[in-house]
Amino acid sequence: MIVAQQKPINDIAQMINDCKKVLFVGCAGCVTVCLAGGEKETEVMASAMRIKRTLENNPLEAITYTCTRQCDPEYIASLDNVVKDVDAIVSLACGVGVQYLAERFKDKWVVPALDTKFIGGSTVHGVWEEKCGLCGECILHRTGGICPIIRCSKSILNGPCGGSQYGKCEVNKDIDCAWQLIYDRMKALGKLDKLMEIQPPKDWSKSRDGGPRKAIREDVMIDE
């Protein structure tokens, strides 16, 4: 899932300081699971913002709506009637949702309430870790199911670098060295010989370095 975190409440408040009526839009997708922008978080943010503005003698009418997903046109279409008289829309979705709202509601001031962090998963309740670098060409079959692109601080394909010690990364003792993990796992699987192959330079054109990407499935497209 996409993991996001809320911006400081005062930063968001600043963005909508001159608005009288604001729509807070939650998303029931990834950001609900990572507890950053689901229905509950949206209610809490709207409530906090109303209180803050009342205290500042600048009352705010804050309304809320939570979409099934903000990254699909049909799910944000239901906002069409809700947005009519608002001065701004605060999106509690990832960066995708913010952009979908901005694109659909061209005359509205749309602002982000979250910082979109990474894609990953939870380890224990309340802790999420980055696991995938979205490089566009998966190599996990060569690295024992552990991604060096995102979990190695240097994205090294022929690791580990000289900074790996006691299983930890040189960047921070709290970061596991991805290449130590890869080595351990390949060793356990009896596949260390695979690590002796020199992995060639990566084709980064399949990552974002090739420009914004698109995925197309002709067979499921609906003819107009």
């Binding site: 400081p8 906090a48 209180i51």
Partner: peptide
């Protein structure tokens, strides 16, 4: 913490 941030 939220209450502190929003001034209440």
């Amino acid at each position: 913490k939220v209450l502190d941030e929003i001034g209440l």
